[in-house]
């Protein structure tokens, strides 16, 4: 009887232990038994620190959140039964809102197979860049947008000395839900974030700027033209719209070859309908 009782108790204990182990979630501690360095680096890295600032449990579950269910991998450690390179869906589990809506906000990136980890680091190493980017934004964007990147080699371009402006200064990589000053899109959009003096309203606006924005006359990335205009000669650019210029504008004279010599307030004037003065 005693033997039978002992046998039943042992069986119950084994069953309980098995059940308990089967239900126990895979935590970072479990993974760290084999991947000690990776776990430690992640926990102390930027991603781990961000997770723990939300909730310690988020960091605890982080390995399986990104690399998928690990039960099989624990029983039989192999590269074939774990997601070594997490899919975008893993990132979107925790980043569903502002950054995560890539499927509708940035479909071109999705169609071309550009995934989160093409630009962002995993957090297993310390990165000096913002948003855990693996490099400067202009270098990451240039990997695909070669023509646009090449524009910054033009004689006149938006750059600070040898550095091109970061693409993310003006472009919203994750799409429409990160729009900033939406109201200004038609009349300059992101340009007005720095060139605030051209924001308006003006007593006498220049209609193309109001309707089509700065790119009606300017190319923003780079140009052979010193003022990033879409034409080499200012007069030819202006005359493409202005077909009723008074005849005293003698184009053979130097003073009339650059319209902005007199019409200096070309972006809009608060004093003069001919845009002579600001």
């Amino acid at each position: 009887m005693t033997r039978l009782r002992l046998l039943v108790m042992a069986a119950a204990w084994v069953a309980l232990a098995w059940t308990a182990s089967a239900q126990e979630p895979v935590t970072m501690e479990t993974c760290a038994m084999c991947h000690e360095d990776e776990a430690a680096a992640f926990a102390s890295g930027p991603h781990g620190r961000a997770m723990i600032s939300v909730d310690a449990a988020v960091l605890d579950r982080s390995c399986v959140s990104c690399h998928g269910p690990a039960t099989e991998h624990i029983d039989d450690p192999s590269a074939d039964n774990i997601n070594r390179q997490p899919a975008p869906s893993a990132c979107l589990t925790c980043h569903p809102g502002r950054e995560g809506m890539t499927d509708i906000s940035a479909p071109a990136h999705v169609r071309n197979g550009v995934a989160c980890l093409d630009c962002h680091g995993t957090g297993h190493t310390e990165l000096k860049t913002d948003h855990m980017l693996t490099s400067k934004p202009h270098k990451l964007c240039a990997e695909c947008h070669l023509s646009e990147s090449g524009s910054f080699q033009m004689p006149y371009a938006h750059r600070s000395g040898t550095r091109p402006f970061e693409c993310t200064n003006c472009h919203s990589v994750h799409g429409a839900n990160r729009q900033g000053r939406l109201a200004m899109i038609g009349s300059g959009g992101v340009c007005l974030d720095c060139h605030t003096e051209k924001t308006g309203p003006f007593v006498y606006p220049h209609p193309p700027q109001q309707v089509n924005g700065c790119i009606n006359c300017h190319v923003p990335h780079g140009s052979p033209n010193p003022k990033l205009l879409t034409r080499h000669r200012t007069a030819l650019l202006c005359l493409e719209c202005h077909t009723d210029v008074p005849s005293f504008h003698d184009l053979s004279r130097v003073r009339y070859q650059s319209c902005t010599n007199c019409h200096a307030a070309i972006h809009g004037s608060n004093r003069d309908p001919r845009l002579f003065e600001e």
């Binding site: 569903p96 509708i104 906000s105 000053r181 003006f202 608060n270």
Partner: peptide
């Protein structure tokens, strides 16, 4: 903004009023 496995949606509105 809202997202689920079957649906994503973002709506944005903006008002601006300027007096010079």
């Amino acid at each position: 903004s809202y997202s689920s496995k079957r649906f994503e949606g973002v709506a944005s509105l903006l008002w601006r009023s300027a007096d010079l």
